[in-house]
């Protein structure tokens, strides 16, 4: 057929290379934060990292894979719960926090067999039911003291100053590793596949996508991420009350962060996490009105700015700082066959 035209597929622009360097610089500074900043800042940043994990996880789940879950607090709570259990049976504090998340992720695998049969609204509500069930079962555990809850006593044995720094570094490493993992997965073959599933499951199957496997990978990853966020939360607050950890407010926060930042954009979830953190920092003490404000803002975004802040910027200006997608550019000249492949640049 027609002569072959040369092209490049751009995945990484000069701008995104620049933003990667910026990210690296910020991370380097953050790594030293406990040496540079006072205790309040370190505590706040730890909280921010946990929010970022939750935001990016829910975005991977709902924004990329189309799995709109309103029950992610199930994993948040279970991560903390298993950490307490492990610590109770003598596992060291920080290994217990990590293992709590690992156990939750392992459990999410059989759960996925059940839940991923459900579609759309059924899945969303089903996940909420799972979260409620998880809470009811956890409350039955004598170690937990029913709704009263329990403290992770082993955490108290560590001196508060070092504990703050350990928590901070663990949260930072967890955030960086999880965000990098999600980014790498979304940029890879899986990312395109799950987006296809999100947009049209049957059509995705018709082009060869293994629908169940794709969904399951994201489901388990998000379970692990939310569970680790939960056990990190436990590390900062020490006490565990089932109603708090399995509360639906966690999912409300995740939805808020992702909708405001930009559903289905990697940068948006990060932006949303930062915005939520700032709003909470400024207005978090105002009680009920704070929650009402969050809800209202979420609805306004869903109605009038459905692609969120970052999605809108991306559409308007074609800016991609941390791109997971592909951009095709045809080259003018036609040096002949075999010239199709050029190294991506610019």
């Amino acid at each position: 057929m027609s002569t072959r035209r040369a092209f490049v597929v751009e995945r990484w622009t000069r701008l995104s290379a620049g933003s990667t360097i910026a990210v690296a610089v910020v991370l380097a500074i953050l790594a030293l934060a406990p040496l540079l900043f006072d205790a309040n800042v370190v505590d706040s940043l730890t909280t921010l990292f946990i929010y970022l994990i939750l935001s990016v996880m829910w975005n991977a789940l709902a924004g990329y894979a189309g799995l709109v879950s309103v029950g992610q607090q199930a994993f948040f709570g279970l991560g903390a719960y298993f950490a307490i259990q492990l610590s109770y049976y003598g596992v060291g504090v920080y290994p217990a926090l990590l293992l709590g998340a690992v156990i939750t992720a392992v459990l999410s695998l059989p759960l996925s067999l059940l839940m991923l049969r459900l579609r759309g609204g059924e899945f969303a509500i089903g996940m909420w039911v799972v979260a409620e069930l998880a809470r009811l079962i956890v409350v039955l555990d004598p170690v937990i003291n029913g709704e009263t809850g329990v403290s992770m006593i082993a955490l108290n044995a560590i001196n508060p100053e070092s504990r703050r720094d350990y928590n901070y570094w663990m949260a930072l490493v967890a955030m960086v590793v999880l965000l990098a993992a999600v980014f790498a997965l979304l940029r890879g073959r899986l990312g395109a596949s799950v987006q296809a599933i999100r947009d049209d499951e049957d059509a995705a199957e018709s082009v060869g996508v293994r629908v169940l496997a794709g969904k399951r990978t994201i489901f388990v990853l998000a379970a692990f991420g939310c569970a680790l966020a939960g056990s990190l939360w436990l590390a900062t607050s020490i006490s565990f009350q089932p109603r708090q950890y399995f509360g639906i407010q966690w999912t409300a926060y995740m939805i808020f962060m992702v909708l405001v930042g930009g559903l289905g954009t990697f940068e948006g979830a990060i932006l949303g996490g930062v915005i939520f953190f700032l709003i909470e920092y400024l207005f978090g003490q105002t009680g009920v009105w704070y929650l009402v404000g969050l809800g209202a803002a979420g609805i306004v975004f869903a109605l009038f700015l459905p692609r969120g802040i970052w999605g809108t910027i991306e559409d308007r200006f074609s800016i991609r700082l941390l791109p997971v997608g592909y951009s095709l550019r045809m080259l003018r000249s036609d040096p002949g066959p075999g010239s199709g492949a050029k190294t991506p640049q610019d």
Binding site: V9, R189, A192, S193, Q195, A196, R198, D199, D200, D202, A203, A204, S206, V207, G208, V209, R210, G264, G325, Y326, S327, L328, G340, A341
Partner: peptide
């Protein structure tokens, strides 16, 4: 039944990588 949230190129890319088993260039 397009994959509405993805670009036209990405629509094809999913097909080429999963259905076609191709990768890279």
């Amino acid at each position: 039944r397009p994959f509405g949230g993805m670009t036209v190129f990405e629509n094809c890319l999913v097909a080429a990588t999963t259905g076609g088993g191709l990768s890279g260039q």
